[in-house]
Amino acid sequence: MQRDVIAPLVIAALVALAPFAGQTDYFIHILVQILLWGFIYTAWSLMGRFGLVSLGHGAFMGIGAYVTVLLWNFFELTPWIGMPIAVAAAVALAAIVGWPCVRLRIVGHYFALVTLALTAVVALSIVGLRDITGGSLGLTPNREAAGTSIYAFQFASKTVFLYVALVLWLIGLFVWRAVDRGMGRYALQAISSDEDASASVGINVGVEKIRIILLSAGLTALGGAVFGQYQMYINPETVSGIGVSLQIVFAVVAGGMFVQLGPTVGAAFTLILAETLRILIGNEYHAADTTIYGLMLVLFIIFMPKGILGAVFAGLERAKAKAA
């Protein structure tokens, strides 16, 4: 068995046991957050690791959350159907924005800017359509009477959501593994290095790029949809918007976007950091945590470009090489 199968399964088994160890709701809540965000960060890294730095994932996440909740509130459409529709909507939007980018060779900073604009448009649309979406006040899914309903994808118990999040997270890691072990990874790495040279050896650059973009966007929307159901409240700031897009990039850079568990480490690191700062500093200095975030992002990019986990693995490799 390989490391990229064993490690996720071992961690999943440990997490699955957490509720039996008599953990508090708060602890379970943090775990769910780490898993859900870890999934979204992993989805982002699927394309981010190939130099496709998207600041548009806030848009995909927002569409995932909002479409699901709106279909439920207005048409009583179960999230079991609503979520796939939301994912399809995000994938369609990714195709509409992504294909011209691919064809016109918008790469690097320009790609980041186009996707940033996408996030802004989606967030502003959510705010602007306040009669439908509730605007910046946010939106709550209509609650099923009992609080728990499989049909409504609503679970009063955090423990149930822990398992939902765990499954989702594992799906993300196995998609990562599939991409990582396929020839497509080499193609995408080649493309990120030199598009003309890639095309000259028979790689269909456009198709390879758009495929990974759509995959990444779709999974991110799925993460957003489940996140909305978990929080039972969504607003443009928490599931969409530029803040979310930047948060994704920061966490992934911190954790390491080139290794399978890097994005998850990023999720754990940023969430624990945010919680610690919140407890230490309190709500008095409102932007203190974001400021420290920003500072750390700069430090990470300069001193640890491979992220925490990437740096750890690189260190282990060096130690192994020295020992041999």
Partner: peptide, 23 residues
Amino acid sequence: FQIPRPFKNLTILENVAVSAYYG
């Protein structure tokens, strides 16, 4: 190419293997 354009983020073998596969 006149000026070599290797895939810098791949090993020598991977450079050629990806060409064999997609070519």
